[in-house]
Write a protein that binds this DNA or RNA. Structure first.
Lengths: 77, 77
DNA sequence: ACGTAATGTTAAACATACTTGACACTATGT
DNA sequence: ACATAGTGTCAAGTATGTTTAACATTACGT
């Protein structure tokens, strides 16, 4: 498993807050596969900027409301 | 040249508004190469979510202030 | 007990982002 | 005329994101 990304997300919560939306429904809404949504949701890797934009769009929030730096690790340059 | 991404950015303007920051300085600040900054700035491709976050951080703005959907093309699903 | 929906997970292939190292051009300063 | 800083660009290689197709588990309804 390739080291988890420094960014975490609140997709799971957002899905439930939006009518118990399933991973499949979200995937369809943003034009990705269910597997990709699952992987992103579990922080296996972070999405492309495009994907992130589409996800935020679906939930009607800013990108920052979906994705955050993990536990204020502001970066490992 | 691999089809331009659906997202554009205002990095160039932001650089100038932030003390005539050079591509090299921005690259150093976000831990990427100058070539990558140049390519992103010219919309050759869009950055990873991590890179986008770091760039926004440098300029002290939200991601949405740096990157936008190109001419309201909300997407080609 | 059976079927189905939702999710986790994996391997292989493919697509896109990013680096490294190079060479070009323009502008500015000496 | 020469040097240097800033930028554009390209090819080859590495790294990361995404798809496809498959199989597993858990929970729910009948």
């Amino acid at each position: 498993m390739p080291a988890p990304p420094p960014i975490s997300n609140t997709i799971r919560r957002l899905r439930f807050e939006h009518g118990e939306m399933t991973q499949q429904q979200l995937a369809d809404a943003i034009g990705m596969t269910r597997q990709t949504v699952a992987a992103i949701e579990q922080n296996k890797y972070s999405p492309s900027l495009e994907a992130a934009f589409r996800i935020a769009e679906v939930f009607g929030v800013e990108i920052g409301a979906v994705f955050q730096w993990k536990a204020d690790e502001k970066q490992g340059r």
